[in-house]
Simulated assay, not measured.
Amino acid sequence: MMLAAELTLAGIDVVVIERRPNQDLESPRSRGLHARTIEVLDQRGIADRFLAAGSTAQVQAFAGIPLDISDFPTRHNYGLALVQSDLERIMAGWIDELGVRVLRERDVTTFTQDQDHVEVGCSDGSRLHADWLVGCDGSHSTVRKTAGIDFAGWDPTICWITAEVEMREQPRFGLRGGGGIGPA
């Protein structure tokens, strides 16, 4: 969505093809934003939208040792606890304001390209003609795989666990405890 917004702001007509029917996620994902990401959102004049929905915290750590970044030379010298579903909802609102077209409940299934354009086939049978095609559909990207572009990197050396639990009462939102990332 950020790329769609940036291209739209540069005067390029953008269409997003999205497999989901809405911004709902099937499982928890990202739990926050780092200082640099907040700075980029601030450069676009939309950081306040995210800050209003999240909770700021000192979240930087190295090897489990908390690092205080409150004296970093930035207006946003903190992290922001914000679940990905909220982040996506806010971004979707912004690209909607910008006039980005989002075609939902379809996948890119095929594409062919020549010197002048790309023809994109979608799972609903529709076809689109574009000057460019960008694959922002993750490590299992149909676009990237079809184009023969590797997903370079290394096997993970650290495993973080995300769990879905049922609780008797609503916990306080934010980052805290464990590994020195926030107040206990």
Score class of each variant (00 low, 15 high):
L3W: 01
A4L: 04
A5G: 12
T8C: 14
L9G: 01
A10I: 12
A10N: 15
V14D: 03
V14F: 01
R20I: 10
P21S: 13
L25D: 09
E26N: 02
G32K: 04
R36P: 03
I46H: 09
A47S: 12
A47V: 03
R49Y: 02
F50V: 08
F50P: 00
A53R: 13
G54V: 10
S55H: 03
S55N: 12
V59Q: 06
A61W: 05
F62D: 03
G64E: 01
I69F: 14
D71H: 05
T74D: 06
T74H: 02
L82G: 00
V83W: 09
S85H: 07
A92L: 05
W94I: 02
W94Q: 02
D96I: 05
E97P: 00
V100W: 05
L103T: 01
E105Y: 06
D107R: 14
D107P: 00
Q113R: 14
Q113W: 04
D116K: 15
H117S: 10
E119P: 04
G121K: 13
C122E: 00
S126I: 07
S126A: 12
R127L: 11
D131K: 09
W132E: 04
L133P: 04
V134C: 08
G135W: 07
C136N: 05
D137F: 02
G138W: 09
S139W: 13
V143H: 04
R144Q: 07
A147T: 06
A147M: 08
W154Q: 04
T157M: 08
I158V: 11
C159N: 12
E166M: 10
R168I: 09
Q170L: 13
G174P: 04
G174Y: 03
G177H: 15
I181F: 14
